[in-house]
Simulated scan of single mutants.
Amino acid sequence: MSHETSVRRAVTSGTFSLDGETFDVDHTDNADNTANTDNTVWLIGDDKEVLIVDAAHDARAIHAAVDGRRVTATVCTHAHDDHIDAAAELSVLTGTPVLLHPDDNELWSFTHHGRKSDGELSDGRALTVAGIELQVFHNPGHTWGSCSLYAPSLETVFTGDTLFRGGPGATGRSCSDRPTIEASVRNRLLTLPGSTVVRTGHGEDTTVEAERPHVPTP
């Protein structure tokens, strides 16, 4: 195996529960987007070590995708249960910390009663894996603690459920707000180079340039 850095996609399936209801995973407010139960788990690194973005549904499947490499951390883009329900088990399997923005601690507690995340994400924090620097952007709106990870050297940003192909993510449930997510996307993500690849928590990749027309201006 080479020591080249890479981004690998693992797909897991399940449901999403909030506000006393359980749903198939539906990642946008747009009526022309079909609901699905698939979550994307991202593994960033090389043949020696990886960082995991979102621990969705199946800790053992994610651990298998790690393929024996050292895991530096599991980063939660936000604390909806379909992105963190495997986090506690995966932390045990890999012996590594789970990182979450503190504004999502309450949401986290709905899924993981009595267990806190292991470390805090904050706007401007830098994480490093396999020589790749990942810059944390706090992008509230989908949830209050939603974050994205920008990797300049890979010309890629990992946006969780904040930005999808077709525009900003859903804000129809508690702990969310449409003007806030639009401002988060417009003021932080759309300032990145247009060719930046947007790797999302559900569905297909897109680019910053492709999404600019889908974000309203004030």
Rank of each mutant, 00 (worst) to 15 (best):
V53T: 00
I52S: 09
L93E: 12
N139D: 13
L90G: 10
G131Y: 05
V75P: 13
T77M: 10
T77L: 14
S153H: 05
V66R: 05
S122N: 08
A56S: 10
G68H: 11
G141E: 08
L127T: 08
V41I: 15
D46L: 01
I62T: 00
H78C: 07
T74R: 02
G68K: 09
L107D: 09
G45T: 03
G114S: 11
T77W: 01
H112Y: 10
G141S: 10
Y150W: 14
D58G: 01
H142W: 01
A87E: 06
H83S: 04
T111R: 06
E89P: 08
S117V: 14
L121F: 09
P140Q: 04
L43H: 09
L149P: 09
E106V: 11
V92D: 15
A87N: 06
H112C: 14
V92C: 03
A56L: 00
G95H: 02
K48P: 01
T96Y: 01
Y150A: 07
A126H: 09
R69L: 11
R125M: 15
G45Q: 03
E133F: 02
R69N: 11
A130S: 13
I84W: 07
A88L: 09
A61H: 06
G45C: 05
A59H: 09
A87Q: 07
A86S: 13
V50N: 00
G131E: 05
L51P: 05
Q135E: 06
S122V: 10
H83P: 07
V92F: 12
H101L: 04
D118L: 13
C76E: 07
L107G: 04
D54Y: 07
A73H: 11
E133T: 14
L99C: 12
T72M: 03
N139Q: 11
P97N: 03
A61C: 10
A61D: 04
V50D: 00
A64K: 08
W42V: 05
D54R: 03
E89R: 06
D82Y: 12
K116D: 15
N105V: 02
L154R: 00
T72W: 01
H57N: 09
P97G: 03
K116W: 09
L134P: 13
I84H: 11
S148H: 01
L121R: 13
T128K: 09
D85I: 15
N105G: 08
P102I: 02
S153I: 03
L93W: 06
I132E: 15
A79D: 01
D54S: 08
D47W: 00
W108F: 14
S122E: 14
W42N: 02
V66D: 06
S117E: 14
H57K: 02
E89A: 13
E106K: 09
C147K: 00
N39D: 04
A126N: 10
A130N: 13
H80M: 13
A87P: 04
H112R: 05
A151F: 08
T74K: 05
T96L: 09
E106Q: 13
V75F: 02
T111K: 15
T94R: 02
D47G: 02
A56V: 00
C147S: 15
L51T: 08
D104R: 03
D118P: 03
V92M: 07
S117K: 10
D46R: 00
